[in-house]
Design a protein around this nucleic acid. Structure first.
Lengths: 193, 193
DNA sequence: GTACGTTTCCTATAGGCTTTAGGCAAATCC
DNA sequence: GGATTTGCCTAAAGCCTATAGGAAACGTAC
């Protein structure tokens, strides 16, 4: 019997592609094996079972996404950077829903996905360098920015915005406007009343 | 053999409690049956299989949560209402992580969970009445508010804020300040530059 | 109180996914 | 070309979902 040329890389990539098609929940070792034309047991030499496959997908997606976001904000600053940053996330989530789901799987503290996650924190901080915030405010702003981007794409993808006008595009532009405004006047914005 | 007194209600509630303990993913028909001291097949008379159980949990959680949020914002307006609103969501998510996960399961368009979802949209609009926004802006603001609350609690619960100071409490206060500021000056905030 | 019908919960069964153990063949290395 | 490593396989066990059909408990009528 000829070999299928499996690798950890190959398996994880096939799984990620499949997840984009049929959703992360339906992407099982069995379904991946079927796609690859291989028996399930054969995958165990390349990925560490079901959870290993998921961690691999998480790492793949987080790295891919960090690459795109990094490319998007390169050479930009301030509002341009903010928009490029946020839109890179949103576009990725819409183009690759399965990979996007995979970015949120819980992983162990020693998973390579953790390092990939740190890249995202760094990218967020890079965007915020365009707004001058002191160290403490930068942390809060990082969390706000992460929350908005994550929350909006999640709600949009789950269809929460589907049954009310106007289209999500329009609100997205307004949300970014609001975010930019908040960041530019952070000191004032966070002093209540 | 004595009867266990099962009902759809009883089964779904047991499942929700279990999910808060062991997570939504591990909450299967089998595990629920074990908790109830009953055979798996017995559950099928009361809930429509695995997906029916999940829809039931989603509806239960969304309704419970809407009750709490509604109670929290009653008699408040403006910034007070905003804070009560957002914190009710965050507190619920932290107290009931399994139920919170359940609020995000995808359900069919004819599920009772859809009606429960609409209650949340209405509550959000109620909070925004304290800020005077025109109709179009109110939609954008609803989406922004939903995104921030959902995104922040999701990231906090998934541990994204765990490995950097300061504690999430502090950022939460700042995020609400920023949100309040944005809503109060929405017109200015959404006019770029 | 007993007989009847309904509801509740059961056993039995089948199929899918995960995981491990052990075997044969293909690739690789002297 | 023979030995070794590697890759993919078959086999089997365990857990989860799902359906079919049976028996015991409950409510009701007489």
């Amino acid at each position: 019997m000829p070999r299928a040329g499996l690798t950890g890389e190959v398996v994880v990539r096939a799984a990620a592609d499949l997840a984009d098609e049929i959703g992360l929940a339906a992407t099982t070792l069995s379904s991946v094996a079927r796609v690859l034309g291989v028996r399930v047991a054969s995958l165990y030499s390349h990925v560490d079972g079901s959870t290993g496959l998921r961690e691999g997908m998480a790492t793949l997606a987080l790295d891919e996404l960090a690459d795109r976001v990094g490319g998007a904000i390169a050479g930009r600053s301030g509002r341009d950077a903010l928009e490029a940053f946020a839109t890179a996330y949103r576009d990725y989530a819409r183009a690759h829903p399965g990979r996007n789901e995979a970015t949120r799987v819980r992983v162990g503290p020693d998973s390579p996905a953790v390092a990939a996650g740190r890249r995202h924190a760094d990218l967020t901080r890079a965007v915020l360098r365009g707004y001058d915030l002191d160290e403490a405010d930068a942390v809060h702003a990082t969390r706000l920015l992460g929350s908005v981007v994550h929350g909006y794409t999640d709600l949009e993808l789950s269809g929460s915005f589907a049954h009310s006008a106007p289209p999500p595009e329009e609100s997205w532009a307004r949300v970014l406007d609001a975010l930019d405004h908040t960041l530019r006047s952070w000191a004032a914005a966070t002093t209540p009343r």
